[in-house]
Design a protein around this nucleic acid. Structure first.
Lengths: 201, 201
DNA sequence: GATTTTATGGGACTAACGTACCATGAAGGC
DNA sequence: GCCTTCATGGTACGTTAGTCCCATAAAATC
């Protein structure tokens, strides 16, 4: 986020240039073309050199073009108390996000594996987990905190781009099959956790 | 596998050259460096041209260099018929593999996310899944084939380096916690699948 | 209006990936 | 010993990603 270069000097001009580049990258993404710094520069009528000044590599560019949503909750207006149903809603939302934003998410995933890790990534720690925790909220009194946390992490781990990438690239499932396996995993994990809850609680 | 070039002519010399290249690549992998054909050539004191004769691209090299492709099964001499116990054995083996070979696996993961999709990544394709399928084998008669396949993929997806990387890098779990969550996920998925089996079967 | 600052642009450069062509030198057969 | 086979090496070419240095033109400042 805080690139010193863009925080000093003629900030507004820089913001315009940067915006032009991310817009161009987004447009390329929308057309299914994996954007390159060079390509975005050309599309934005900005020189290659300048483009590289803003985005040192393509992953940084794609990550910046990532359409970021700041939704607090993925549950609708009238969420039930049924954890399973809540989780299914969240899982549906998460997998459909993966399906529609796959290129960006792959780019971010790749960035996250880089040796030099940018301090802040769109893929920060909380988002996915907090949505899942949100879904599991009705279980808060029936499970121990540690167990709940573990469950939330376990479920979240099955709902991400990295699982999707493995299922499609390596296991050779279709994109829809992969998404469906992910949702089934999420539900299955919750079911088995609930089955372990002592009757009294 | 059957590379015509290496099956004809001065086979032994070729085998030595190839071995030198894969050894070099393995060493790079062990250091967490995604090997390149060029780099392996240099490390093996073989000319670039020759190296490319053996491995037309880096994925072919990495595939050949990837360790431990040999084991047929992870179950010991005397496997039980209890699927859960079998799966726990496999999951234990897989997670401990991830723990000990993390750098190599991360390197391969990075490679697999490269823009140009590798046409074939033999080491990935079947191994993890087939080990899990092996563990699930006793269920073959109690589950439909499609359901079994889905379950095997779902479980496999939770037992890989990509899940581990997410759990440690993004969710900030310790390495041991991550491995433990992965194993719990695998068991949980199997339990919930078995709970759905009609009583009669 | 003149001067300084600075965002941008251009071009040269390195490095990696992959291909193609030709030279060389060692094995092996005779 | 000679000649053929053939594994290897060297050079060159084309592409993409990314870096670096220097020039320039447009703001900002005075």
């Amino acid at each position: 986020m805080s690139v010193p270069y863009e925080r000093t000097g003629r900030i507004h001009q820089k913001a315009r240039t940067r915006g032009a580049l991310t817009d161009a990258a987004r447009e390329l993404l929308a057309r299914g073309v994996p954007p390159t710094v060079e390509g975005a520069a050309a599309a934005a009528a900005v020189s290659r050199t300048t483009a590289y000044r803003y985005f040192p590599n393509r992953w940084a560019l794609v990550a910046a073009a990532f359409p970021h949503v700041d939704e607090e909750s993925l549950l609708g207006d009238d969420p039930t108390d049924d954890p399973l149903q809540r989780l299914e809603t969240v899982a549906q939302a998460l997998t459909s996000r993966v399906l529609t934003h796959e290129p960006e998410m792959r780019a971010v995933l790749k960035l996250s594996l880089e040796d030099i890790r940018p301090p802040e990534l769109p893929m920060h720690r909380g988002l996915r987990v907090s949505w899942v925790e949100d879904a599991l909220q009705p279980l808060a009194r029936r499970l121990e905190a540690a167990e709940l946390r573990r469950l939330a992490y376990g479920i979240s781990a099955t709902l991400g781009i990295e699982a999707f990438a493995w299922l499609t690239d390596i296991a050779q499932l279709s994109r829809d099959e992969a998404a469906s396996v992910m949702r089934a995993n999420a539900s299955g994990l919750l079911e088995s956790a609930m089955a372990r809850i002592p009757a009294g609680r």
